[in-house]
Design a protein around this nucleic acid. Structure first.
Length: 551
DNA sequence: CAGTGAGCGAGCTTCCGCTTGACTT
């Protein structure tokens, strides 16, 4: 029989690690938590120091029995659950439930699944960290008390089957408040002027450096451009650069799969899970952007041989951690970075492609660009047109990957857009000057993925709960994902062409929404009720502090 | 006399966070 039993949280991880450790080690999985608070009111004794009552859940009874037997046969049990608050608690629950002997029990941690990291962890065992376990218990107990005290109030006052909780109720609040903001929003119009000139036989479009608040001012400007001479006053070229983005965490993967592939957050997680179980990617529930040394080295070799030395820029992404991040795992990356594609189901192929590109590009050089601004004057007015061009002088990471953008107007930000040749003092023939009435836009409604982003910024929820939280608020009927057709809106166009000014009214479609989150009537009623009577629990900081203070 | 409807009581719902399958649709 084996001398050593190692217990980890995930069975896929167990399989990998067993391969690293050899025949003296058996590696088993706890499949997450093995115990939880009991179901009823006796689960927390509020009268007696909030004493929790834990039970092994029915679907874990068989597993606990097996682990107990395995532990009995082993000389040493290694508790190798994740290096975070929940992982520490799982180790403690295992020690209690399996009745492990302290002298034959060791706690080890590692945040990457490489042979080197595992062997190093085995050399440096420690004890279970009681403070971290207590932090987890406080978090668990508080979530139970909040959820199970508030929800019944909603059953009595509003409707049976409703729910409230530290995380979900704040998620609903965010959606409701954004909707109110949008309802109250009054669009403001201004006039933006664009001139089109001819240089080197090419058309150059250049926006004016001033916007006009009223149609009168805009019309006056366009009128005064009749017969004006347009001269190139200055040309300035500035080098800039763009940095690649960090490899994926759960939340950035969900956002990018939503933008680029149109996936819901649950679809992203389902597909990522299947890639993980096939051994193709690292763990998909993580808040860390760290890469293992092995992965960085592998990326460096791949990039150097595929694109050349100057495309490689090995680096670790630190410093912009999400609030409350615990970094028990690596970033999400391909297990083998030299494998640039996978086969199989279409969703898996596409998500793998995204993960590979993001990980590889994170280890590539900055892109170098040159931004050129030509100032084109108007002889009759003090304002000037600003023609902007951009040339990519070295593509760097852009060769592989460019992060998506939530804002449609920024779409061309990274395109090559070269200005035609011009010289200072040159007079440019003018084709047209057009002043267009533009309306300001309200803050966008949330998508599933942008709500996850917001929750993460606020430090609310964890990688394993973003997708379930999004589905809970929809299942309860607080929030609906839906589309809205736009409504037509008129706007004015003032055009100067061939020294003649014309004014026309055009129509645009505004307010089109696709796959956005809308609060329902019941969502609004529940939110307002909770805000009125339990405002402390609805506070963003309260709910985030529960997570932050316990680490 | 049998079926109907009003009224009453009992039992249920619910949290967050860690993991996969085992179930339907």
């Amino acid at each position: 029989m084996s001398k050593n039993l190692v217990i980890v949280e995930s069975p896929a991880k167990a399989k990998t690690i067993e391969g690293y450790l050899g025949k003296d080690f058996v590696v088993k999985s706890s499949y997450g938590h093995i115990r939880d608070l009991s179901k009823g009111n006796e689960s927390v004794n509020v009268e007696d120091g909030f004493e929790p009552n834990y039970v092994v859940s029915d679907d874990k009874k068989q597993l606990v029995k097996e682990l107990k037997q395995a532990a009995k046969k082993a000389e040493i049990v290694w508790l190798a659950t994740d290096e975070d608050r929940e992982g520490e608690a799982i180790s403690w629950h295992l020690a209690e439930t399996l009745q492990l002997k302290p002298e034959a029990t060791k706690r080890i941690v590692f945040s990457e699944i490489t042979k080197k990291a595992i062997l190093k962890a085995i050399e440096r065992p420690r004890d279970v960290d009681v403070n971290l376990v207590n932090a987890q218990q406080a978090r668990r107990i508080l979530d139970r008390l909040v959820g199970f005290d508030l929800s019944p109030v909603l059953w009595r006052k509003i409707k049976p089957g409703l729910s409230a909780g530290r995380v979900q109720s704040v998620a609903v609040r965010i959606i409701v408040e954004r909707e109110r903001e949008i309802t109250l929003f009054k669009p403001k119009a201004d006039f933006r002027v664009v001139g089109e000139f001819v240089a080197d036989k090419m058309g150059v479009k250049a926006p004016l450096n001033k916007r006009f608040g009223t149609e009168e001012e805009a019309t006056a400007f366009v009128n005064e451009c009749i017969g004006a001479v347009h001269t190139v006053d200055s040309i300035e070229t500035k080098p800039t650069s763009r940095k690649p983005t960090a490899p994926f965490t759960t939340s950035t993967l969900q956002q990018e799969a939503s933008r680029k592939l149109g996936f819901s957050v649950s679809r992203t997680m389902r597909v990522a899970q299947s890639l993980y179980e096939s051994g193709l990617i690292t763990y998909m529930r993580t808040d860390s952007t760290n890469l293992s040394d092995d992965a960085i080295e592998q990326a460096k070799n791949f990039i150097t041989s595929a694109f050349g030395d100057h495309y490689s820029n090995p680096q670790q992404y630190r410093g912009k951690k999400a609030k409350g991040a615990q970094e028990a795992h690596e970033a999400i990356r391909p297990s083998d970075l030299t494998q640039n594609a996978t086969t199989g189901e279409r969703d898996q192929v596409r998500l793998y492609d995204l993960i590979w590109k993001r990980a590889i590009s994170s280890q590539m050089a900055n892109a170098k660009l040159e931004n050129t601004t030509a100032v084109i004057s108007v002889s009759t007015r003090p304002e000037a047109f600003m023609a902007k061009g951009q040339v990519i002088t070295f593509d760097g990471f852009l060769k592989v990957y460019l992060e998506g953008n939530d804002d449609d107007e920024d779409k061309d930000k990274d395109k090559d857009n070269r200005l035609p040749a011009m010289t200072i003092g040159q007079e440019l023939p003018r084709k047209t000057i057009v002043a267009t009435e533009r309306f300001s836009k309200h803050a966008p409604r949330f998508t599933e993925a942008s709500l996850v982003k917001r929750l993460e910024e606020l430090g609310i929820g964890r990688p394993s709960t973003y997708a379930p939280t999004i589905s809970t608020v929809q299942k309860r009927g607080y929030v609906e994902k839906g589309d809205r057709d736009g409504t037509p809106r008129n706007f004015q166009l003032i055009t100067l062409e061939k020294e003649t000014v014309s004014i026309s009214t055009e129509t645009e479609n505004t307010g089109v929404e696709r796959s956005k989150l809308f609060p329902t009537d019941i969502g609004i009623v529940v939110n307002d009720f909770l805000m009125q009577h339990f405002d402390q629990i609805m506070d963003f900081n309260f709910t985030a502090d529960v997570e932050a203070n316990s680490t």
